[in-house]
Every structure is written in structure tokens, then in C-alpha cells.
Design a binder for these strands. Structure first.
Lengths: 192, 192
DNA sequence: TAGATTGTTAATCGATTAACAATC
DNA sequence: TAGATTGTTAATCGATTAACAATC
């Protein structure tokens, strides 16, 4: 099974959502593609192309209605769907901090599986929508446990990629660091 | 100042690096574009296009020399450069865990600034290459403190994007979660 | 009406793919 | 030599951009 294709525009939806929520909280009623573009650090053309499908929100000569746009994007993102998440491999002391970190973005139920308590058999019996994996010591075991469980999506922050048949966000910490160091190097080269 | 452009191929370098390191540890001498492609979940054509510039490593009819390729990519990524990092806003109890997490990828020196100790004035006087921000309560203050400091790159994991003149990796936790929930939704639609 | 700004088009750009000649 | 696999090309695809007509 191949996971659904997500366009470049759709990948930006979470940032639109976050930006528009701020506008809303500031009491802004309307916003133009150029102002929105500046906030997102993209071009006005990109904004208009991305928001093309939210036809109810844009008005020629006026701009976009913040509230309407925000509502439509929220619905698409499924922010109100109330998914459940389990965080696997957290340090016990860190759990409360993580909970605050993940709060308020459509997760209605959050639980923890700490690392040293027969982790893989617990993962197999997982009953939730999203699994966030912070650490594991056996990638293959974790992957087959995840396949057995009914989770619908995985956020993987261990040191290696997972290859599953469900939507998976692989964010190996080491890779992020390497990418940043590489960019720094390129940047320094460019300045010379 | 605009930060250097990074091609799609270059963005994959950290994953090549990690994969090749595994091959090396397994004692593999050579690897073909098709095997490497499978490991990275991309096409053999992409692999050959990406590795085109590492002309010393590929040999027609044979494949790529793992050791040579690994060495050249390491050098490009600057893995041996020994950068220093400061982690800002960590929970004290979590610091040791984080340190292990970040270890062994070119960071030679790691320090911590906990959240409640006059954080912004400490950030201003930062003397390191990379700042990893886990939490802050005032985005503007943090940004100007970072600008004053001499840091060369920022990894931002707070809830909003930073807009700096240096290489910056913005990974707002909420956005990652939203993107994953969106993918799950699209995936379920596609199955119906 | 005059000014502003979206919606949409055509042109451009970069990334991916498929195919195959070169060559080990 | 025969088989394998890179290096490279041309075709395709998707994303971005610039421009402007439509229209509020």
C-alpha cells in the first residue's frame, strides 16, 4: 500500500493554520496574500495558488476572510477530530513537559509508555491513532509491533527511519543536526 | 542576507551518510544504486543523480565503494568539524537524555541553559556554533538575543517559526502533528 | 469611479524518471 | 567476452513565478 500523495501546498497547511490562528487572536478580520506571504516567508503567488481551493474565503479587491479561511483549513487538517496519541520511550521525568508540548492541536487523549516495561508487547496492544516514538533499542521489533497494533500514523524521532505502510514522519535527530551543520558550511562558503 | 540554496539531493545527504555508516559497520565493501535506493526509499536514478558529484566512488559495472563514498559525504557534511552546541530551555531532568540523543554526529561540545535562569541575557552572550531551542516564552526576545550572540545556526523546536539571517531549522511540534493527522485523513479517504 | 487584490494563465525552473551508451 | 552497473541524456512532472484580466 502506498501512502497518499501530499502536494507542496498541502504541506504548508499547518503553517497557514498557525499563522491564521494568531491573526484571529489579534482580532484581524481580513488578510491579503502579500501580508500572509510575508508572515510565511513565501511569495504572494504561492499563497494564492495554495488557497485557490478555499474559494469561499477570498474576495477580489478585498483579501481573505481570516475566520472563514481558518475554519476551512482547520476542517481539512482535522484539528477538531480529537485523535488519541501514545508517547513511547519517554523519560518519566519528561512526560509532563511533553504533554504540554503536544497539547491543543487536535490530540484529545494522551498516554505514555515508558521505556523499561516490556515495551514491545505493550506497543502491539496499542489502541490509539498516533504513536510518537522517542527511543527504542530494536528497530525491527518496534516496527513489527507497530504493524500489529492498529495505529494509523507514526511520528518517529529515533536515530533511524521506519518503513511502514501507514503515514510516518521520520525525524532522526542526527539527520537534522547534520543538515544544519551542512547549511552552516554552505553559508560560510557563500560569504567568502 | 539570504541563506544558501540547498538542492533536493543535498538535503538527502544526511540519510546517505547514516545508511552508508550502517553498511560500513556491516563490513560491506561495495553497494549498487539499486540497493542503496531501496534502503533510502527512493529510485536508483535519484541515487545516481545525487551521487554524480562524488566521482571517485562510483565505478561502472561494479557499484559504489562504500568507504570512499562515506568519507566524501562525511567531509561535505562537516561531520568531523567538531561544532559546539547549546541546548536552551531543556527540563533539567531531561538534559542527560538529550545529550545522548545528540551525541556522535559532529558535536564536540555540548552545554545546557535551563529555562529559569535569566535565559535571554545568557543567550546573548552565547559562544557556540549551534543553538537548539526547546522552549521559550518570548519569541521576539529570543530572536534578538540569538542575533546578538554569534551562533551560526539554530534548531528551533518551539511552537512558532524563527526568522533569522542564519541557517535555521524550524520544527514546530504542533505543525508536525497537524501534518501527520492530515496525512492520516487523506490516507483513510484514499482507502475508501 | 478608482484602487486594490484575487483568481488564473502561461512561462520558467528544478526534480524525477526512463533509457541507454559507456565501460568496468 | 558476457554481465553488471554507472554516468548522462532527453522527456516528464510538479512547483514556482510573473503578469494581468476579472471584479469587489
Amino acid at each position: 500500500m502506498k501512502t497518499a500523495y501530499i502536494s507542496a501546498g498541502a504541506k504548508r497547511l499547518p503553517r497557514y493554520f498557525r499563522t491564521l490562528r494568531e491573526c484571529l487572536m489579534n482580532g484581524e478580520i481580513k488578510i491579503s496574500s502579500s501580508v500572509l506571504a510575508k508572515k510565511l516567508d513565501i511569495t504572494p503567488s504561492q499563497v494564492r495558488a495554495d488557497l485557490n481551493r478555499y474559494s469561499g474565503a477570498g474576495l477580489q479587491g478585498y483579501g481573505y476572510n481570516v475566520k472563514t479561511l481558518y475554519t476551512e483549513i482547520s476542517r481539512d487538517l482535522g484539528v477538531g477530530d480529537g485523535m488519541s496519541a501514545v508517547i513511547i520511550g519517554a523519560e518519566p521525568s519528561n512526560a509532563p513537559h511533553l504533554a504540554t508540548w503536544l497539547e491543543g492541536r487536535g490530540i484529545s487523549d494522551m498516554r505514555f509508555i515508558l521505556f523499561d516495561e516490556g515495551i514491545y508487547s505493550k506497543v502491539e496492544k496499542l489502541d490509539c491513532d498516533i504513536a510518537l516514538i522517542l527511543y527504542c533499542d530494536d528497530k525491527e521489533k518496534m516496527q513489527s509491533a507497530l504493524r500489529q497494533s492498529g495505529v494509523k500514523g507514526v511520528w518517529n524521532m529515533t536515530q533511524s527511519d521506519f518503513d511502514l505502510d501507514i503515514p510516518t514522519v521520520n525525524l532522526p535527530v542526527g539527520d537534522i543536526l547534520s543538515a544544519l551543520m551542512y547549511e552552516i558550511k554552505q553559508n560560510e562558503k557563500g560569504e567568502k
